[in-house]
C-alpha cells in the first residue's frame, strides 16, 4: 500500500480510535485486496511503511462484499459500481478480504477494540 496512505490511516486510527473506522477496498485483484486488508489488520507485509509491525486490527471489507452492498442505496450502487460487479470476481475478492478479517480477529484476541 502507498506509504502516504499508511501514514494517514495510522493518524486516523490514533485520532478516532480503531473501532470507529471501516476500511473499504476497491482492488480488482484478490491478491492485492488481501495485501491491503493485511496491512490495515496485522501490519504492512512489505515492511515498507509505518504500518509495518503495527496491528491496527481495523474492520475491513471489499466494496463488493454483501455487508457493504446491502447498505448502499440501489441507485448509488448502479451509478458508482454498476457493471463492475460483472467484470470483477466479487466472491474471490470478498473471500480474500474476509480471510484477513478472520485472521486478524483470531490474532488480536478479545477486547482488543
Amino acid at each position: 500500500m502507498d506509504l502516504d496512505s499508511q501514514e494517514q490511516i495510522l493518524k486516523l486510527s490514533e485520532r478516532h480510535g480503531p473501532s470507529s473506522l471501516v476500511v473499504i477496498i476497491g482492488a480488482p485483484d484478490p491478491e492485492a485486496a488481501e495485501i491491503t486488508a493485511e496491512t490495515v489488520t496485522s501490519g504492512d507485509p512489505s515492511y515498507a511503511g509505518v504500518l509495518a509491525g503495527t496491528q491496527l486490527g481495523l474492520d475491513v471489507y471489499h466494496i463488493l462484499e454483501d455487508e457493504i452492498r446491502s447498505e448502499v442505496p440501489d441507485e448509488v450502487w448502479e451509478d458508482q459500481i454498476g457493471i463492475m460487479t460483472d467484470v470483477l470476481d466479487g466472491s474471490a475478492l470478498g473471500s480474500a478480504v474476509a480471510a484477513m478479517r478472520a485472521q486478524a480477529v483470531g490474532a488480536s484476541g478479545d477486547g482488543d477494540d
Binding site: M1, S5, Q8, I9, L12, H16, S20, L21, V22, V23, I24, I25, G26, A27, P28, D29, A32, T36, V40, L58, I63, L64, Q80, I81, M84, L88
Partner: peptide, 13 residues
Amino acid sequence: RQVIALGERDGIS
C-alpha cells in the same frame, strides 16, 4: 462510522 476508502484505478476507484 468513519470510512477509509482505498480504491484502485483498475477496480473500484
